[in-house]
Structures are given as C-alpha cells and as structure tokens.
Design a protein around this nucleic acid. Structure first.
Lengths: 129, 129
DNA sequence: GACTATTATTAGCTAGCCTAACTAAGTATG
DNA sequence: CATACTTAGTTAGGCTAGCTAATAATAGTC
C-alpha cells in the first residue's frame, strides 16, 4: 500500500509537471475550488500541513496567478485565499490530464478493479484525516 | 485517488521520520531485501527514479549502514547494492511501525474496506509500472 | 493600557526529485 | 591496436516541499 502510494505519486508528479502545477498545489487548489475560499490556517489544517508550508504554497500559487489573497472581513491578521478563474482552468486541465493518465494506466484493468481502486481512494482519504 | 495518495504519504512520512528512515529509502531497501541485490541502474528502474537519484539514495543508505556497495563480478563499471543485516532489521521495524499506524487508522474500517484497500494497492502497484 | 494568544510570514534546515556534465569502463570498427 | 561510441555511476546545481524557530501585526482579556 505504502509503496503503491509512492510509485503512484512519483508517476503522477511527473505527469503533472507537464501541466505546470505540482500535486500539493493542485490538491490545495482543488480545496479552494470545491470548498470555497479559506484562510491560510484553515487550508493548512485541511491539507494536513503546517501553516508556514501553506503560506509558501499560497505565495507560489499567487505568483502563478492561481490564487488571490484577500483581507479577512473582520480579522485583519487573517488572509483569505480565493481560487482565480485561471486557477479553476488549470485545475480542470490538471484533472483531465491525470484522468487521461489513469485511464491509460488502467486500460488493461477490469471494471471491477477500477471500482476497487476508486473505493479504496475514498476509504483512505476518509481514514487518513 | 490522487489526493488520497498525497494525504496518505504525508501521514506515513511523518510516522517514518520517527523510525529514522524515509519512505523512498524504505521502498528501495525493501526491494533489495525481497528481490535480492541489484545494481544502481536496476534499482533506479524498479523504483521509477533516475539513476542519479538512486545513486544519492544509495550513498545516503550506505552512510546509514543499511546497504553495502560491491563491485560487479564481470562489469567493473557496475555497483551492486546489498541490504545489510542492519538494513533488514530497520526494514522490519519500519514495516511494523507502518503496520501499526495503518491498523490504527483503519481500526474503524470494516473487514471489507480493509480488503478493498489491500487489493487496490496491489492493482495500483501493478499498473503503475 | 498592558499582557497574552492567534495569524501569517520569513529564515534556515533537510530530503528528494530532476537535468547536465563528467569519469571510467566496456564494445565495436577501421 | 586505436579511435569512436555506448553504458554505469557520480557529482554539481536547481527546484519543490516539508519542518521548526523567530518575528510582526492584530485580537482579545483583565
């Protein structure tokens, strides 16, 4: 399971490099797109990463125009991260690329195997939190 | 699936830090233990990593006494990597630690879910190659 | 108003991945 | 056999992504 995860990620990371956005960034970006704007701390907690790490990821993503920083309404310390239109586009493209990759990887797998993998992903993600 | 793999690895990596050996090293080490001695190039190919990356991993693992470098019998260019006794011990301990972690993560999962995850890991590892 | 807690950033460290450039050794060819 | 090519590994340099510790700025509390 462990080595499967390593090998999978190394493979996907290589592919994502083509789309220009690394896995941690895509992962954070997808939270912003699907769960809406979040502060740095919130996003760090959701991604199971320390705040400074997320702060840097956010800076890098802002640099790339994927994310916008805004002041919090009521707390001047907090920074709210929003996905930009470009961020949404990039996320969609990344998801498509990964999907294509996974499809081609799994093209010799049976429908049952695919279902097993999909379900396992859900279980793991639920449980790792 | 992708984010599941990211989250799982971040979690496992944190745990492995405790055992002193990182996931890429444990993964390479387990190949040497279970598949026998390998040259740098062979191991790099099996781990889906470039040769220089494996060369560095090997150097680091040698430094830690997990691995021994030997000259190839017939090809003086090649370096054969062997797991040491310490390497085997460390691998066993690492596997145990990870097992404990995964067990505790999955302790609220049903037997069926565990079976699903196990099978998915096998499928992914087979397919990612 | 002074003290403490919280939010984010910055600096500095480590590990792992890459490509490019190099050395050394094997192979093939004129 | 000498020259040229290929192959195995290492080294150098750069990037991303984790972490902890330290700092700045704001919020909350007594």
């Amino acid at each position: 399971m462990h080595s499967a995860a390593i090998h999978l990620l190394r493979r996907v990371a290589r592919e994502d490099a083509g789309s220009g956005v690394s896995p941690p960034r895509l992962s954070a970006l997808s939270v912003l797109v699907f769960a809406g704007p979040k502060t740095v701390s919130e996003l760090a907690a959701m991604e199971r990463v320390k705040v400074p790490t997320m702060s840097r990821l956010a800076a890098a993503m802002e640099e790339e125009g994927l994310v916008r920083r805004e002041r919090h309404d009521t707390d001047a310390r907090a920074v709210v991260l929003h996905a930009t239109a470009k961020g949404r586009r990039v996320l969609d493209r990344g998801r498509e690329l990964r999907l294509t990759l996974l499809e081609s990887l799994l093209e010799h797998a049976t429908a049952r195997e695919i279902a097993v993998v999909r379900e396992a992903a859900e279980i793991v993600d639920r449980v790792v939190l």
